[in-house]
Nucleic acid binder design. Structure first.
Lengths: 165, 165
DNA sequence: CTAGAATTGAGAATCATTCTCGATTCTCGG
DNA sequence: CCGAGAATCGAGAATGATTCTCAATTCTAG
């Protein structure tokens, strides 16, 4: 029986992330080593948004030592491979799953620093229309809305204007 | 005589950037010093996209020495004041005029690394609709389209697929 | 099993940015 | 005009994230 399909789901995830990574590495004549496998497994088993430091810490806590250098090197590869998406919201890079995860964008609350995801179909349409108008061949996009989330709006005095006090 | 007005121009620039900055500083009980004035003047007289280092270099070349520390401190203030917008496309922050400059977003060519601006009215509408749906109070947004610009598309073999070679 | 190549890890190095703190400049009441 | 006190400045140190170096290890092909 046909699985119900989101009409715009662009992702057909036939390979596991590890397989996808192996293919990518193969093309470049590089190898899927145990350190790399360990990292991909860990990343795609749990985390959502994380940074290099968390990764090092988590793996260390789990008894697996992976050097900082290797973590950074592998993260770069995973981004190039299209498995991870890099977000530069602050001074340190954060990462999230890209492969096998539906396209989405983010709301960033500058008060509590939380990041909320949302999906919106128009964005894609808009992106392509704008790109076409500029002879641009789009490969991706980032739509980030900054502001104050509902919780924080409620928490703070509702009638403040500027950050005067 | 009525100046012709873009129907969505949200900016009424009655003050010069320096004035706007002075107001901002006054509110916080800080001063518009000569170093700060020098920086604002320089920034709003020429540059469009620039980073801290260029600023230091340019000013130095123009015979005005401003310490790195002051440049960074002032850039932060200008962003807080809403005069500049900070872009984190790479590891170093880039800045562009925000005050007195129409709202816009960017196309980033990953091949030649050029950044092109575009204006699109739907984005605002979309941003507000999405925010509303999430009880979010938006204060700004960033819409970045990454891809390959027309020139680069033409320059490279038109029939390449992946970066295999 | 072995030579050669790729990867790893520890720590050094780099790069942008921020901090420290003494020197300088500004403000404002006299 | 004259300080006293506060804010700002600059030089260089410090920080923090990321990248690099290079010897040791692991992998691959034969």
């Amino acid at each position: 029986m046909e699985a119900q399909r989101d009409h715009l789901a662009p992702l057909v995830v036939s390979d596991s992330p590890v397989e996808k990574f192996r293919e990518f590495l193969e093309i470049r004549g590089e190898k899927l080593t145990d350190r790399r496998r360990l990292l991909v497994d860990h990343i795609f088993n749990s985390h959502k948004h994380f940074d290099a430091d968390e990764l090092v810490r988590d793996l260390h806590d789990a008894g697996h030592g992976v050097s900082r250098a290797t973590v950074y090197r592998t993260l770069r590869l995973l981004v190039e491979a299209g498995l991870l998406r890099e977000l530069r919201l602050t001074n340190r890079s954060a990462y999230e799953h890209d492969y096998g995860y539906p396209a989405h964008d983010h709301l960033h609350c500058t008060s509590c620093n939380r990041v909320v995801e949302f999906r919106n179909d128009e964005i894609l349409r808009l992106r392509d229309a704008i790109s076409a108008a500029h002879g641009f061949r789009p490969s991706g996009h980032r739509f980030l809305i900054t502001g104050v989330c509902a919780a924080c709006s409620r928490a703070h005095s509702p009638r403040r204007r500027l950050d005067l006090i």
